[in-house]
Simulated scan of single mutants.
Amino acid sequence: MDDTDTGVYARESDRLGRAVELGVAGGRALSVSFPESLPPDAGSDHPTLDRLFAYLDGEEDSFSDVTLAITVPTEQRRVLDAVGNVPYGDTVTLELVVRMTSGLDHEADADLETAREALRANPVPIFVPDHRVTDATGATPPDVAETLRGIES
């Protein structure tokens, strides 16, 4: 993505049974969502959207080179950074995510809740693969998360 790249892009995914929507500003990914229907004002031609659809077709991609522009509290950002380090095809528990997150204690209820909140608030599913956390709900809808795990297995 280049620095002037701004807009909303989306396409219908037969694999997911819904659309995949990508928000971009200043060449950075702001959001990924899975609306039930295609937004009428979204463009359909974007190289990162092409990569998302190649991933949905089974092509392995870490998306580690996609620049993200996400705004969440610092502790939540550290959780999302930890989730971003879970490799393609692997799954982890929420406890392991908290263990992987600097400054959080996996035995502290408040820190476990911070991690849960971060996953639910994740603005860029797939790029931050909350579907790889098996015992906590992320921003990825449950049916989509199950499909993504199936793609990666």
Rank of each mutant, 00 (worst) to 15 (best):
G27E: 15
A19K: 06
T74P: 00
E75I: 04
E146I: 13
G7R: 02
R15H: 06
D5M: 11
Y55P: 05
V124D: 00
L94N: 12
P87G: 09
L96C: 07
E12S: 05
S13M: 11
L68G: 02
R15T: 11
V72L: 11
L38G: 01
P123A: 13
P123V: 13
G89A: 07
L38M: 08
I126C: 01
A136G: 06
E36F: 13
A139K: 10
T67W: 07
G7Q: 12
D130V: 02
H106S: 13
H106V: 08
N122H: 12
T147H: 04
L96N: 00
R11Y: 08
S33E: 15
R149Q: 13
E12K: 04
R99M: 12
D81F: 07
L80H: 06
E59G: 14
V79Y: 00
L56N: 08
A121H: 13
A145K: 02
T101E: 04
S37N: 05
S44G: 07
V124L: 15
Y9E: 01
D81W: 03
L94V: 04
L148Q: 00
T48V: 12
T134G: 05
S33Q: 04
I151F: 12
R11E: 08
P40R: 03
D57G: 02
A82S: 05
A118I: 11
E36W: 14
V8P: 00
R132L: 00
D65R: 14
T93F: 03
N122I: 10
R99C: 07
L30F: 04
Y55F: 12
D45A: 14
T134D: 11
G43S: 06
A108Y: 15
A10F: 11
Y9W: 15
L68A: 03
G103M: 15
D45N: 14
D61T: 08
T114M: 00
R15C: 01
D111W: 09
R11T: 05
V144C: 05
R28P: 05
D2W: 14
Y55K: 06
L94T: 02
S33M: 04
S44P: 09
P73Y: 05
V79I: 08
T134R: 05
Y88T: 01
Y55S: 05
I151K: 02
E152I: 05
A54V: 02
A54C: 02
P47N: 04
V24M: 06
I70D: 15
G89K: 02
L96A: 09
A82I: 03
D143I: 08
A69Q: 15
A118N: 12
H106I: 10
T71I: 04
T137C: 00
V124N: 01
G58V: 01
T71C: 11
V83K: 00
V98I: 13
G150S: 15
E75K: 11
E60T: 04
P123Q: 06
L119I: 10
V128M: 00
